[in-house]
Design a protein around this nucleic acid. Structure first.
Lengths: 114, 114
DNA sequence: TTTACATTTAACCTTTTGGTTAATTGTATG
DNA sequence: CATACAATTAACCAAAAGGTTAAATGTAAA
């Protein structure tokens, strides 16, 4: 839902690898777990982090719960990153002038809130 | 240097906003700090996380240390994300067959190590 | 209905993270 | 040299993250 949730979800290597596994085909929770040296409970929590970030969707089918990738959320990340990349590095020297004082919460109202 | 370090660095909203601030012009540590409601020490540690991920570079000039964005590292993130996005969602049902047993560390040797 | 299996949730523990204040380092200047 | 300023590092603390085992939930099947 939020860029923050997405970035947090992507910060863990197991979660990134889970997304990778789901790239081509959907998998059950158990099958996903079989790829990692951690308990099913641990995987389940990773899955819920990914689900809360809406990076994956789940469907129960009988005994199994299948997970599939929802890549659309990554659009926001792509936009953020590519916006940062399309930058004009214009280095200028000189005495820096602080645009606001401490405690003014100047970053609010800019691109993102905390 | 590593995708892991980059993703970790991007997982914090203050760090993302710092990169945003550096998008157009370089800034001194103090000027960066003036945008956030935390201490200079806290900002300094955020800066070192970003620097260790090679997302920013620093240059001392007299009393000041100027920081500038190094967007080239983001290339790796872009590739990883866009690779994930260019996926063919071919949902197939059926009994899942685990490709390896618990404790086999099957994710090693795939895309990424832990 | 009882049992087994797939998965999640609860309770707990350890490590990491992000914040603070205080001390340290580096540079310019009276 | 002594003082002031910019920034970092050290020491410490609270909260979050990620792991485990054990209990709970949901569904299929004997």
């Amino acid at each position: 839902m939020s860029l923050q949730a997405t970035c947090k979800a992507l910060a863990d290597p197991i979660r990134r690898e889970i997304l990778n596994l789901l790239k081509n085909r959907r998998l059950s929770a158990g099958e996903i777990g079989s790829y990692f040296p951690v308990t099913a409970a641990s995987i389940s929590r990773h899955l819920s982090v990914l689900r809360e970030a809406d990076l994956i969707r789940d469907t129960r089918e009988g005994k199994y719960i299948f997970y599939e990738l929802n890549a659309s959320v990554l659009e926001e990340v792509m936009l953020w990153v590519s916006d940062l990349r399309s930058t004009s590095p214009a280095p200028c020297a000189g005495e820096p002038k602080p645009p606001c004082r401490k405690g003014d919460f100047c970053y609010e109202g800019t691109t993102e809130k905390i």
